[in-house]
Computed example of a mutant assay.
Amino acid sequence: MFLLLLGNNSHIIQDLDEIATSLTLQRMKELDVFCSKPPKMIEPLRNQTAKTGIDVSLTCNTTGVPDPDFWWYKDGKLMPNHRQMVLTISSVSEEDVATYYCVAGNLVANYSFEEVHVFVKGM
């Protein structure tokens, strides 16, 4: 039954193992698993251009039941300390020029946003 519930091929083995070990019947009821909805994009990510020293925000704008978790990527590499819906890059510099995207995921599925670019121009 568990594999049928999650059998949409959007989860990796580690995700399934973590879900399986933490998902008791009580927890399934709390999460309302049987009324779950996959993450759905509300608005796409947009390219950003900012002057050096300005804050830039990217929003992984999605809905889903239960609320999705978020993973941000910079130039294809996971940013491990960034797990919120909004990625804020404080005081942008040349080091922040890159491609970014996010993945929103819950018990039902993962949704990957298209990559966007952050550009920085001098003051």
Rank of each mutant, 00 (worst) to 15 (best):
T88S: 14
A109Y: 13
A98V: 09
V33C: 03
Q14D: 12
S91C: 04
N9T: 15
L31M: 15
G64Q: 07
N110W: 04
I12D: 11
C35S: 14
S93W: 08
L25G: 15
G76P: 08
V120F: 11
T49H: 03
T63D: 09
I42H: 06
N8V: 07
N81F: 07
K40F: 05
Q48P: 00
Y101F: 10
D67L: 08
V118E: 07
T59E: 11
K51E: 11
H11Q: 02
P39I: 08
N9R: 08
T59R: 13
V86Q: 02
V86H: 00
Y100A: 12
I13Q: 10
V56N: 05
V116L: 10
L16I: 14
F2S: 04
Q14F: 14
D17Y: 02
S112W: 10
L78F: 13
F34D: 01
E43C: 15
K29R: 09
S90N: 12
T88K: 14
L107R: 07
T49W: 15
F119Y: 15
V86P: 01
L31W: 07
W72L: 01
W71G: 14
Q26L: 02
G122D: 01
L4C: 08
T24S: 13
G7M: 03
I12R: 09
T24R: 08
W72V: 08
L87A: 04
N106V: 14
E95V: 03
I89T: 01
V108K: 14
A109Q: 05
T63Q: 14
V116G: 09
R46S: 06
R27L: 03
M28Y: 08
D15Y: 07
I54Y: 11
C102D: 04
E95M: 13
S10M: 02
C35W: 13
S57F: 09
Y73M: 04
I12A: 11
G7C: 12
D17I: 00
